[in-house]
Amino acid sequence: MNDAPARTMAAAPRPAPAKAMGRGAGFAAGRSRAALRAVLLPIAIIAAWQLAGTNGSLAGGVLPTPDRVWDAWVMWAFGPKGMGLNPYSGTWLDNVLFSAGRVAQGFVLAMIVGIPAGIMIGWSRAVSGTVDPTIQLLRPIPITAWLPFSIAVFGIQDMGAVFLIALGGFYPIVVNATHGARDVDRNWIRAARMMGASRFEVLRRVVLPAALPAIFTGLRIGLGIAWTAVIVSEMVAVKSGLGYVLWDAYYVGRMDVVIADMLSIGAMGLLSDWLIVTVEHWVLRWRRLQTATR
C-alpha cells in the first residue's frame, strides 16, 4: 500500500514528458529528489498512524491501523466471492466498475449538454440572455439538495445517480465553456468571416478550438464534482458502488473497509483526472509548443 499512493502523487501533478527525461543527469537527479520529497509526508503519516495503534486499532478502538486496512483491502479485492461472513469479499472490482460506469455516463451527458450550451451562451447574446439567468439561478443549489428530488423522480435506480452526476458536472463545464467562447480574440472571428466562413463555420473552426483550453478546465472541475455526486447518490439512492459500500461498511462497523473504500475513491479520482489531462495534452498540443518557444 505504501508505494501505490507514492507513485500516483509523484506522477499526478506533472506527467513527465519523454523529452524532459533526456535533459541530463542533473535534471534527472532533481526530479528524483522532488519525487522523494513528495512521498515523505505520506510515508510519515502512515508510519505514525501504524505506530500509534495497539492490537490493530487506534485509541478508542474505532480506527484500524494501516496493516488492517491493507488486509481488508486485499480481501475485498481478491477474496472469494459469496462468503456469508464477509459480504465484501471479492466485490471490489465490481463496485469500482459500478461507480466508474455511472460517472462515465453522467459525465458524458454533462459534456454533451454542457459544451454546446456553453459555446452558444458565450457566442450569442440572445441565447445568453434567455438561458444564462436560469443556469445562474439553479447553480447555487448544492448537488446534495437535489437528492430527494432525484429519488422521487427516478427511484432507487441508476438513472437517479446518473442525473445527479450529470447535473453536478454540467455547471463547471457550461460556465467555463461560456467564458472560453466569450473571450475569443475578436480579430480571429473577423479574419474567419473575411475569409468567407459562415456563422456555423466560425463556431466550429474558431470559437470551439479557441474555447478548448477553458473547456478542459471545466471538464477537470466537473469530473471532481462527478465523483462527489456518485458517492453521495450511491450512499442514499442506489444499492451498489463504492458509495454504497462506504455507507454499508460504516453501518456494520467495518472501518477498515471504509478507509480502504475512501482510498479507492481517491485513486479513481486521480486516475480519471489523469485521463482527462492526457487527452488535454494531446488535443492542445499547439499550446505546449507555444509556451515552449516563448
Binding site: 480579430n187 480571429w188 479574419a191 473575411m194 475569409m195 468567407g196 473552426r205 499547439w286
Partner: peptide
Amino acid sequence: PERAVVFQEAALLPW
C-alpha cells in the same frame, strides 16, 4: 473574401 484584410498582429489561428 473579395476584400481581404491583413490585421495589425496578423491574427492567425494559433492552433
